[in-house]
């Protein structure tokens, strides 16, 4: 029989090497996350998946499960912290859902719904982030970037192209394109790249494909992210 840890009082079995997040998902328990993707090595940067392990905060996407661990996730305290992190992501970028092609399919938006985020709470930064429309097939809208680094990891580890990178530090961290011009058109990026499929928000968008699926009939319009995620993320 597999060893177990407890998550909010419930016994969760795990396989050696599994993280808390992986074991919880396999057991049908959703832990909110944005930079984690089941096909990629965890990055541990968004901190949405933070839980308390034996009373200490830790990212559940990077922490390996261990027998007898006591993990808290669905508490008022932890969800309040997750909501605050999500609100900070909203005010640091320019997230205008009504005019975004990703609305309804966006993990940031769906996570905010899950956390009951009724307002951004903080003052908005309204940063100036010009879009990159240079590529014939793909639009890059940096206004929506949450620095999850999934495109960086996909392009480097799967596509072998290293098209994207995170540059700068702290609040100045931003997504860049690895070309002398800084433009996507001057890379070998294509729509078939894994990196074109993994953006959880609306940064990497296929051109001339706007609103093919109407608002109201999209992934998270039909079911909340908690049930979509445990049913198997795309």
């Amino acid at each position: 029989m597999n060893p177990t840890f407890t998550l909010d009082g419930r016994a969760i079995p795990f396989l050696p090497g599994q993280t808390i997040l992986q074991a919880a998902t396999a057991a049908g328990v959703f832990i909110p996350h944005l930079c984690y993707h089941p096909e990629f090595k965890p990055h541990g940067s968004c901190k949405l998946c933070t839980v308390k392990v034996n009373g200490r905060h830790t990212a559940s996407c990077t922490m390996q499960a261990a027998p007898g661990m006591s993990v808290e996730s669905e508490t008022e305290e932890i969800n309040g912290e997750r909501r605050a992190l999500t609100q900070m992501l909203f005010v640091e970028g320019n997230h205008y859902c009504p005019s975004c092609e990703k609305s309804g399919d966006c993990q940031l938006q769906a996570t905010a719904y899950h956390l009951g985020m009724m307002s951004p709470h903080y003052d908005h930064f309204f940063p100036n982030r010009p879009v990159d429309a240079s590529h014939p097939e793909v639009l890059l809208d940096f206004n929506r970037c949450i620095l999850c680094s999934l495109c960086v990891r996909a392009s480097r580890d799967v596509d072998g192209k290293n098209v994207f990178a995170l540059s700068g530090r702290g609040i100045d961290t931003h997504l860049i394109v690895n070309a002398a011009s800084g433009k996507l058109a001057d890379t070998d990026f294509t729509l078939a790249d894994k990196a074109a499929q993994v953006c959880p928000v609306g940064v990497i968008l296929k051109k001339r494909k706007g609103f093919a699926v109407p608002i109201g009939e999209r992934t998270y319009d039909k079911a909340p992210i908690a049930s979509v995620a445990v049913a198997g993320e795309k």
């Binding site: 909203f90 005019s99 982030r129």
Partner: peptide
């Protein structure tokens, strides 16, 4: 009560902010 996207984050008019 703030009603709707524009009251909450500026909405479409705030897209002039840059």
């Amino acid at each position: 009560i703030a009603l709707g996207a524009c009251a909450i984050n500026g909405g479409l008019p705030a897209q002039r902010n840059s």
